[in-house]
Design a protein around this nucleic acid. Structure first.
Lengths: 226, 226
DNA sequence: AAGAAAACTTGACCCAGATCAAGCAGTGGA
DNA sequence: TCCACTGCTTGATCTGGGTCAAGTTTTCTT
């Protein structure tokens, strides 16, 4: 990503290599002091925050190549918890050391800014999803997001396992479990995908994309004043 | 914010001083090349992105002291537009020059990381809002957010003008205009606030806080597996 | 100052999706 | 192998808030 070989090595030096973690293991919990960022090498992780009265809000699912913990830099405390969804390899990057490094390597500093900025952009996409899309569009967007992120890592974009439960998907998308379940059934009936337990095959990617774009139209045609 | 006097001056040097902008003026539009961050000195700004078919999603309202444009660092292009809601003074900070500066001033680099991280945290809060809260809770949260942010700047936390329309509020919160209007009426009837056109007085802040916390309870009592 | 347009409010009705309920199917422990 | 538990599916019903409609007030234009 635009770093000199020597710089890559320096970065590599501070990364704590991954030991394997298992389903249910925590990377950190809400309230923990912030020390490190985490990068998923293999497997998957969910982040979540408590909502009112014992419930939780799933904030994200993190796949290989993705980074966790950026939101904690500000307060120096984790505001959410991170839990491993399946056997996973996770690298730990002590933030203090990373910060020293970026101060000395401008291109690495730039990458850090981009990384943080990208995270903001992704959250923005999610706001749009939750603010304007119906159940069908949300689930289609979710599936395509997984598809694209896996593909980016050289994995199949149309054939994969869901490491998270229907409940967690619903929670993440602001939908009831039942709605998620019904939509899986419907998407399958409509020939968009094949579902076998947690094994997913996206049969008609273009149709899913059309769904997300709101070919089954959304609300809000607001124009703004001069 | 933890910078030496000399460093503050250096930062000050690169900031382009604010000329006054008026309602409807654009800071930047979706698709514009990213050059600068913007800081609201006085007034207010909304950011918004197009959603499907001509509609828009309001992404945020930006009050004095707040920064705009952080999401564009990644792609080097603005993914949303920013429009001034009322006569406002806005400072422009050329990002390239800021980046040079942060490379030489570690404490400033740290502040930048914090700033970006904070933005992520705020988006997270918004996800929670849209994913888990009902109309009443959303509007209460919105009002309290304005209240707190104004208070932080030394303005009244309980008496202020809304520079955005009901429509924009609804759009931002994922609600119909009619719902926003009805809730303003109801909140007033319930003695939580006084509404006179765009002039708002929050009469019972504790009650509003109770509302947000979901004393009128929310869903989702999910527990996770081991 | 008059007319037009935009913003807001209020009421009536409707529906997507939540909730409630029941049964089924994997999964894991002993 | 059996039992218990958790996760998933499907059906029936309910409801918060969206949509439609109509009227009112405020704010721009000229």
């Amino acid at each position: 990503m635009g770093l000199a070989q020597e710089d890559v090595e320096r970065l590599d030096d501070i990364v704590k290599r991954a030991r394997p973690l298992h389903r249910g293991d925590s990377l950190f919990r809400e309230g923990d002091k912030f020390r490190s960022l985490y990068v998923v090498k293999t497997g998957s992780v969910k982040t979540f925050a408590p909502s009112q009265e014992g419930g939780e809000q799933v904030l994200g699912f993190h796949l290989p190549g993705e980074i966790i913990g950026l939101d904690a830099i500000d307060k120096d405390v984790h505001a959410c918890s991170a839990r491993v969804l399946e056997t996973s390899a996770i690298c730990e990057i002590p933030f203090a050391r990373l910060e020293e490094l970026t101060a000395n390597i401008p291109s690495l500093q730039h990458q850090m800014y981009r990384l943080l900025s990208k995270e903001i952009g992704q959250d923005t996409d999610m706001l749009l999803l939750l603010g304007k899309k119906n159940a069908e569009e949300r689930l289609a967007a979710f599936l395509l997001s997984l598809s694209q992120r896996l593909h980016k890592r050289g994995l199949s974009p149309s054939d994969f396992y869901l490491s998270m439960s229907r409940h967690e998907i619903g929670n993440y998308l602001g939908l009831a479990v039942e709605t998620v379940s019904r939509l899986f059934t419907r998407f399958q009936e409509d020939g968009l995908m094949q579902v076998d337990r947690k094994h997913i095959q996206l049969v008609d990617l273009p149709a899913l994309e059309a769904l997300v774009k709101g070919v089954g139209q959304g609300r809000d045609k607001q124009q703004q004043p001069g």
